[in-house]
Amino acid sequence: MSVRGRTYRYVGPADLRVLVRPGGEGRAISSSTDLDEWVSQRPPAEREEAFTFVVDVDGVLRLAPRRSEHVVCAGGGRVLSAGEISFRHDMGRWLVDEVSNQSTGYCPDVSSWPAVAEALEHAGIEHPAAFTLPVVFRRCPDCREHNIVREDDFVCVFCGSDLPHDWNVDPRA
């Protein structure tokens, strides 16, 4: 795969990073068959909800149950994107129902969508043209808290300062 773009390192709480275990990363999905097998192994109630996903730095889609932490799904490493995704099976093929970049551990920009699209295409899974539920993350330059920008209101919910319009969550990125 020819994945390009920014990589995101984990910027969430340190106490969640300790949950990462060797071999505990999310299931690599490189084909529809991989998705069939992984979903069939999930408990019935879990199959009906969205899954946690990351696209690793090699461009591979990795899935984990929804209540999993993104940093665990990524094996603690950098990612090209992260969020939540749901699928439906229709006439023998997999389609993405909804997909977001909602990951407060990595806070990926909406511009990470091409990495998600490429990973899904590589796996043969049909998808929308963009995140169906895009999330805009910003870091407050004054109080340094991470914010989710809602309704284009670029104001920090913690201290009231203006937030930048360009992605700035990870100062070391």
Rank of each mutant, 00 (worst) to 15 (best):
residue 102 Q to R: 09
residue 58 D to M: 13
residue 165 H to R: 14
residue 37 E to V: 15
residue 49 E to G: 11
residue 41 Q to C: 15
residue 1 M to Q: 14
residue 17 R to L: 15
residue 108 P to G: 02
residue 14 A to F: 10
residue 113 W to C: 00
residue 41 Q to A: 15
residue 165 H to C: 11
residue 9 R to E: 07
residue 136 V to E: 05
residue 111 S to T: 10
residue 93 R to E: 15
residue 22 P to A: 15
residue 68 S to R: 06
residue 104 T to D: 15
residue 173 A to M: 12
residue 173 A to G: 13
residue 89 H to S: 13
residue 106 Y to S: 01
residue 138 R to I: 03
residue 15 D to E: 14
residue 129 A to Y: 04
residue 100 S to E: 03
residue 71 V to I: 11
residue 99 V to L: 05
residue 160 G to P: 06
residue 113 W to D: 04
residue 113 W to R: 00
residue 130 A to L: 09
residue 37 E to F: 13
residue 70 H to I: 05
residue 149 V to Q: 04
residue 18 V to H: 11
residue 59 G to K: 04
residue 8 Y to A: 00
residue 46 E to V: 13
residue 148 I to S: 08
residue 54 V to G: 02
residue 120 L to M: 07
residue 106 Y to K: 00
residue 159 C to W: 12
residue 48 E to W: 06
residue 92 G to L: 06
residue 51 F to E: 03
residue 118 E to D: 14
residue 134 P to T: 09
residue 129 A to F: 06
residue 6 R to T: 15
residue 66 R to E: 07
residue 64 A to R: 02
residue 116 V to I: 12
residue 135 V to N: 04
residue 18 V to K: 14
residue 42 R to S: 11
residue 173 A to R: 12
residue 169 V to F: 03
residue 24 G to R: 11
residue 39 V to K: 01
residue 72 V to G: 04
residue 21 R to T: 12
residue 27 R to S: 07
residue 12 G to V: 08
residue 119 A to R: 04
residue 129 A to L: 07
residue 126 E to R: 10
residue 159 C to I: 10
residue 81 S to H: 02
residue 3 V to H: 11
residue 59 G to A: 06
residue 171 P to D: 08
residue 73 C to Q: 00
residue 152 D to P: 03
residue 137 F to V: 04
residue 77 G to N: 01
residue 130 A to Q: 12
residue 118 E to R: 14
residue 86 S to D: 10
residue 76 G to L: 10
residue 44 P to M: 09
residue 142 D to W: 10
residue 124 G to Q: 03
residue 160 G to D: 09
residue 96 V to N: 00
residue 115 A to R: 05
residue 16 L to D: 09
residue 12 G to T: 07
residue 68 S to Q: 05
residue 19 L to D: 14
residue 4 R to S: 15
residue 154 F to P: 05
residue 100 S to V: 02
residue 57 V to F: 12
residue 45 A to T: 10
residue 166 D to F: 12
residue 47 R to H: 04
residue 55 V to T: 03
residue 97 D to T: 06
residue 98 E to A: 13
residue 170 D to N: 08
residue 126 E to K: 09
residue 164 P to K: 05
residue 142 D to K: 08
residue 170 D to T: 09
residue 78 R to F: 11
residue 27 R to N: 07
residue 163 L to P: 02
residue 75 G to W: 06
residue 125 I to M: 01
residue 60 V to I: 15
residue 75 G to I: 03
residue 58 D to A: 14
residue 145 E to W: 06
residue 172 R to K: 10
residue 166 D to W: 12
residue 116 V to H: 01
residue 8 Y to R: 01
residue 77 G to S: 10
residue 101 N to M: 05
residue 19 L to I: 15
residue 3 V to C: 14
residue 171 P to I: 12
residue 168 N to W: 08
residue 148 I to P: 01
residue 36 D to E: 15
residue 49 E to D: 13
residue 50 A to E: 06
residue 85 I to H: 03
residue 90 D to P: 07
residue 46 E to F: 10
residue 158 F to C: 11
